[in-house]
């Protein structure tokens, strides 16, 4: 076991940021912390890294209690902050070299590691650029390179893909999986459920500092009653027809908005064929059809009654 967190409590005045949070992280995992803004993801990470004092609980990293003076443990940890933390006056290579130098004293080995980190994050050709000359995506990659150049065994990644272009995001996620394949254990926080689903082997959903659920994505989805979701592009449908749809036993929920008819089914039900028969029987014309499995957002919605992501902006909310 790499990390053991037991009954962690952190309060900011009257606000309970972490409420008896407990979890373990095994060696070789990509452990995802998923939750909306203010759910306590970053607070939990900061407590584990001893950046924050906590009110109650126990934290062990590499089998030893974690404290600000746990330098032997810190040597094996890499951190990629939510915000880009680099020196504006240094070039890309100098930044990576400096942060790597805090862990690795041997100049020759460090030179090799820096070059590897540059290649790993795809920053070749930008080595002599200062940060302000880099795009947002390249800055994020530099931020990651600074955190992982010393080849840590345990890497904390706190929302590393926020405000990143799709190309850079894809590259970053690929990189994380590659780091994991090379043996690193990764703690990954995000509000992008697709990312968490894509890369994490185990996920913990947080809300208001509490664990809502944890397990593999399949296990999480199995916890809810929701089955597949079918969407039909329909331009005209009567209330009577909607009522008939709701009366189908396998249908859990029907909603119609902006010419899109969304039909959610109960777990284990495959009703697409049945629905197509219904449309034919009712002579109801339709356009495009989408069918999808439940997402982690559905898990969160069913467990908390709230959306994981901010629908108005289409953007994930930050924690």
């Amino acid at each position: 076991m790499i990390i053991r967190v037991k009954e962690l409590v952190k309060r900011y005045g009257d606000l309970q940021a972490l409420d008896n949070l407990s979890f373990n992280v095994q060696k070789g995992e990509i452990f995802g912390l998923l939750g909306p803004n203010g759910s306590g993801k970053t607070t939990a990470i900061n407590c584990i890294l001893s950046l924050l004092k906590y009110d109650k609980g126990e934290i062990e990293v590499f089998g030893k209690p974690m404290s600000p003076d746990s330098y032997s443990s810190k040597r094996k940890i890499g951190v990629v902050m939510q915000e880009v933390a680099v020196f504006e006056v240094l070039t890309v290579r100098e930044n990576i070299d400096y942060f790597c130098g805090l862990y690795v004293q041997d100049a020759e080995r460090r030179k090799h590691l820096v070059q590897e980190a540059i290649e790993f994050t795809g920053l070749e050709g930008f080595e002599n650029f200062v940060p302000k000359k880099l795009s947002g995506g390249l800055l994020r990659r530099l931020n990651i390179a600074c955190g992982i150049a010393h080849k840590p065994e345990l890497i904390f990644m706190d929302e590393p893909t926020v405000a990143v272009d799709p190309q850079s995001r894809h590259r970053i996620l690929e990189g994380i999986c590659e780091l994991n394949r090379q043996g690193a254990t990764i703690i990954y926080t995000s509000h992008y459920m697709e990312e968490v689903e894509q890369i994490c082997s185990r996920i913990m959903i947080l809300d208001h500092g509490k664990e809502i659920a944890s397990g593999s994505k399949e296990a999480l989805k199995a916890m809810i009653d929701l089955g597949e979701k079918n969407s039909f592009e329909v331009y005209d449908i009567s209330d009577e027809q909607l009522m008939k749809l709701r009366n189908i036993p396998e249908v859990a929920e029907v909603s119609y908005r902006d010419n899109m008819l969304l039909i959610k089914s109960h777990k284990g039900s495959n009703i697409l064929e049945r629905l197509l028969s219904f449309f034919k029987q009712e002579s109801l014309p339709f356009g495009r059809i989408y069918s999808e499995q439940p997402t982690l957002n559905d898990v969160f919605l069913e467990m908390t009654g709230r959306e994981l992501r901010d629908k108005a902006t289409g953007q994930g909310v930050q924690t």
Binding site: L49, L51, P68, Y71, V79, M81, V84, F87, C146, G147
Partner: peptide, 19 residues
């Protein structure tokens, strides 16, 4: 001023080099 940036300090605190 360069070293006292909150983010840089956080990153440095995470390192094995003592404060």
């Amino acid at each position: 001023l360069v070293f006292n940036s909150r983010l840089i300090r956080m990153r440095q605190v995470c390192s094995p080099l003592s404060s």
